[in-house]
């Protein structure tokens, strides 16, 4: 069996390769969209970023439930790492969406249901990370954060279905919706490749983040013993 760091390194190279393939498909294979033109290519970052953020926040929920049920530190590390990455990918979603919104909607930001609910999702998990930073004692930190991690997950369906539940400027879901996707095959292929690349990158970064959390805990425990 390969040592953990070698496996992580292989995962990192695979993620990089997948991102390069995704870029190639987004710019070299997917056609120019007939209505929006080339600015639509922002979709290959924007949509994978939000889907990766959903995955991250689902893992925060899983890790939080696991921690409350078992009090095992591994679940807390998973939740904390996934929350950090969820905030990162939600930030990319909001930034890329805002940049896409300017040429297509004529504005960087509007208080549309999808945009507002995504901003709330972002702020809830920023709050989760701030809470973790404020509590030093690992068990209390894990318990408090787990409660926020579980409550915060209620925002995920709100963000996703906001375009259905409220009148929104943002377009309805074209993937992960009940109807078959209307996206043309080459565009769908490029989107799927970028989604896979983002997921691989997410897994790589999460594994590294969890390894670091383990080292941080060891350093904290060593420091506490020394005191």
């Amino acid at each position: 069996m390969m040592p953990r760091s070698a496996t992580t390194r292989v995962l990192g190279w695979l993620a990089l390769l997948a991102l390069l393939v995704g870029l190639g498909l987004a710019f070299g294979y997917a056609p120019r969209e007939s209505i929006q033109g080339n600015v639509q290519r922002i979709m290959y970052v924007h949509v994978p970023a939000v889907l990766t953020a959903y995955l991250a926040f689902v893992l925060v929920l899983v890790g939080s439930i696991g921690y409350l049920a078992s009090a095992r530190a591994g679940w807390d590390r998973l939740a904390a790492g996934a929350a950090e990455l969820g905030v990162l990918f939600t930030g990319i979603t909001i930034a890329s969406g805002s940049i896409w919104g300017k040429p297509t909607w004529g504005t960087w930001w509007t208080w549309d249901a999808r945009l507002t609910s995504t901003a709330i999702l972002f702020l809830v998990y920023v709050g989760y990370l701030l809470l973790r930073a404020m509590v030093d004692e690992p068990e209390r930190r894990g318990r408090f954060a787990a409660v926020v991690g579980i409550v915060g997950a209620a925002n995920i369906p709100i963000v996703h279905f906001s375009v259905k539940w409220w009148r929104a400027l943002h377009q309805p879901s074209t993937i992960l919706g009940p109807e078959p996707s209307p996206i043309a095959a080459p565009i769908a292929a490029a989107l799927a490749a970028n989604w896979a690349a983002f997921t691989l990158l997410f897994v790589y970064l999460l594994v590294r983040r969890i390894e670091i959390a383990r080292l941080e805990e060891a350093a904290f425990l060593g420091g506490a013993r020394a005191r």
Binding site: I35, N38, V39, V45, H46, A49, S96, I99, P103
Partner: peptide, 18 residues
């Protein structure tokens, strides 16, 4: 609609930088 390559580059640049 114009292609707005500047916006495309900005979106990819922000994501890459983050």
């Amino acid at each position: 609609m114009p292609d707005n390559w500047g916006y495309v580059l900005a979106a990819y640049g922000v994501a890459a930088a983050a």
